[in-house]
Design a protein around this nucleic acid. Structure first.
Length: 284
DNA sequence: CTCTGCACCTGAAAGC
DNA sequence: TGCTTTCAGGTGCAGA
């Protein structure tokens, strides 16, 4: 599923295609996928598309919002007559006839445009929420994003203080600390910083914290520039595809020689239940 | 409070 | 080939 750069790529794709459209109808298959009342959104016009961390917020003219979390396999696909934009988990559904067995929600929009929420594993969701409810979620469950100017060494040290024995990988994956980071960009940032995913945060020096911030910004900005990571060979119907997968140095590179030419190899371990890729030679 | 591990779901890919 | 196991871009929560 998408991390910050992939979700931002979706936001950009949706922005040009659905803003100004009116929601004609909403159909969904499970209560888990669509949490809200369809009458709270039908008849309203889409006024904006925003992103924070890995969440997509579609703003409506009646002051309600559709908040999406795509989790691991969520996708948002817009079909405007013959033109199609697909983002999120890469799968054949980017091109498949829709709706299909993975379709959880169909939004019928004005001008014969359709927005599909597909999600194979059903972990993702769409909730109908007020601006205040969304603000409360951000306030409670999300910290700053690495690209925010407030994401400083002081900020990270304040978060680190109470959990000195946590390893850095899980620390950076914590959305209340580094919003928008996920498994790919965390592994890549740790490689860039030359720091082992297993390092306890109490053993990280101030210059290393700064290097971590710089590395996170570097890999996230690369992800944004390349339109995210598109594992496998999936290409969007509009001809574009994410390009970050060609620039990954450790994620899913198990067994390959270290990109730093240090003589080491990329190995895969499990940290906090997540596949973790790093060079045990030059990441310490 | 922190930490660990599993639960939530389904399918693709890798291993035997 | 075909069966079995592992893995998957993410949380959320019970129990220690």
């Amino acid at each position: 599923m998408p991390e910050l750069p992939e979700v931002e790529t979706i936001r950009l794709g949706l922005t040009d295609r659905i803003i100004g459209k009116k929601i004609i109808s909403v159909d969904f298959d499970t209560a888990k996928s669509f949490q809200g009342k369809t009458e709270d959104v039908v008849g309203s016009t889409i006024s904006g598309v925003e992103r924070r961390a890995k969440l997509i917020q579609i703003k409506l003219s009646n002051n309600n919002n559709l908040l999406f979390h795509l989790k691991l396999t969520g996708q948002l696909i817009v079909i405007d007559h013959s033109e199609r934009f697909a983002g999120g988990h890469p799968s054949h559904d980017w091109h498949a006839e829709l709706p299909n067995s993975n379709t959880r929600i169909v939004f019928e929009l004005s001008d014969n445009v359709k927005l599909y929420f597909n999600d194979m594993r059903k972990f993702g969701w769409c909730k109908v929420l007020s601006p205040q409810a969304i603000e409360a979620i951000y306030e409670k469950d999300y910290g700053f994003e690495p690209l925010d100017k407030e994401f400083t060494v002081e900020y990270l040290l304040s978060k680190a203080k109470r959990i000195p024995n946590r390893n850095i990988k899980q620390f950076l994956m914590d959305q209340t600390i580094a919003a928008g980071m996920g498994n790919i960009y965390t592994d890549e940032a740790l490689f860039e910083a030359g720091i082992s995913p297993l390092r306890k945060i109490k053993d990280i020096s101030v210059p290393e914290w700064q290097k971590l911030i710089d590395s996170m910004c570097k890999v996230l900005n690369m992800g944004l520039k390349y339109g995210g990571t598109t594992d496998s060979d999936y290409v969007r119907a509009d001809g574009t595809k994410g390009g970050m997968q060609d620039h990954l140095k450790v994620y899913h590179q198990t067994g390959k020689p270290c990109a730093n030419d240090c003589g080491g190899k990329v190995i895969r371990i499990t940290v906090g239940g997540r596949g973790t890729h790093y060079c045990s030679q030059c990441q310490n």
